[in-house]
């Protein structure tokens, strides 16, 4: 497959909640196999941007395309689109009334109507890959934050999405659990997954990103390779932002 194939295209996106713009004329392409890391100060619109990408937020201008098809025209079959766009949120969002295995099976069985045996096998393989092969029968309340997030990643992966969106998935974690989750994402990146990642972990961003996108005040101010961005940020605001991470 061509590396230059665009999976997701965002064109002149604008978004507001009624009291001023949250995202202003945002354009961004994400190519197959590419890892785009979106960073920026708190409240700049990173989560909103990800949520627009899978239709959790309505948009006021511009358009978003998935595989070349506009998905923001109003007649979108979101169920179909969302199967191709996996998302993991900051807050632990596992379904508390279902076991780990049932959390993972819900999408494949109820949405994709796949064969239970086959999916169970795949689920177990994926769980083992993230170090949770023993936890199939556990309930979310019995897991640590880091384990929950790894399950949430597996639950999204098993749908075989074309792109994965991660919204600060380690932000609510205790420091000692951050690593185990980032490692899983790093492994996915190495395996060629297409990903859009919002994170405040700058070292991780530098390690995992093919491209860094810096947002402030709802606008994309900079995009570039990690080397460019972290060594020589072009804008004053990006420099200021990076300074807040230095001691």
């Amino acid at each position: 497959m061509e590396k230059n194939e665009k999976v997701l295209e965002i064109r002149h996106l604008s978004k507001d909640y009624g009291k001023g713009a949250i995202l202003k004329d945002v354009s961004l392409d994400i190519h197959k196999g590419e890892v785009v890391v979106i960073i920026g100060p708190s409240g700049c619109g990173k989560s909103t941007l990800l949520r627009c990408m899978n239709g959790l937020e309505s948009i006021q201008g511009g358009e978003i395309l998935l595989d070349g098809n506009v998905i923001t025209s109003g007649k979108t079959n979101w169920s179909l689109v969302r199967q191709k766009i996996g998302m993991v949120f900051q807050s632990y969002d596992l379904f508390p009334h279902l076991t780990v295995m049932d959390n993972i099976l819900l999408g494949p069985l109820k949405v994709q109507k796949r064969d239970k045996k086959e999916v169970e096998k795949e689920a177990l393989t994926l769980l083992k890959r993230v170090g949770l092969g023993e936890k199939t029968k556990a309930y979310p309340r019995e897991l640590s934050g880091g384990q929950k997030q790894r399950v949430a990643i597996v639950r999204a992966l098993i749908m075989h999405p074309e792109i994965m969106l991660f919204d600060e998935v380690t932000a609510a974690l205790d420091p000692e659990m951050v690593r185990e989750v980032l490692d899983v994402m790093l492994e996915l990146a190495r395996a060629g997954s297409t990903m859009a990642i919002v994170t405040h972990e700058m070292q991780f961003a530098e390690a995992v990103a093919d491209r860094i996108v810096f947002i402030d005040g709802g606008e994309i101010l900079e995009t570039g390779t990690p080397e460019e961005f972290f060594k020589m940020p072009k804008t004053e605001r990006a420099r200021k932002f990076l300074d807040t991470f230095k001691f």
Binding site: W78, S79, R82, Q83, M87, D93, P96, L106, A156
Partner: peptide
């Protein structure tokens, strides 16, 4: 967030209600 993560798996609103929201 429970509704949103159900939707983001591709469940329709009705299925999200039935399998995720109502049981809880």
């Amino acid at each position: 967030i429970q509704t949103e993560s159900a939707l983001s798996l591709g469940l329709t609103k009705a299925k999200a209600m039935r399998y995720v929201i109502l049981p809880q």
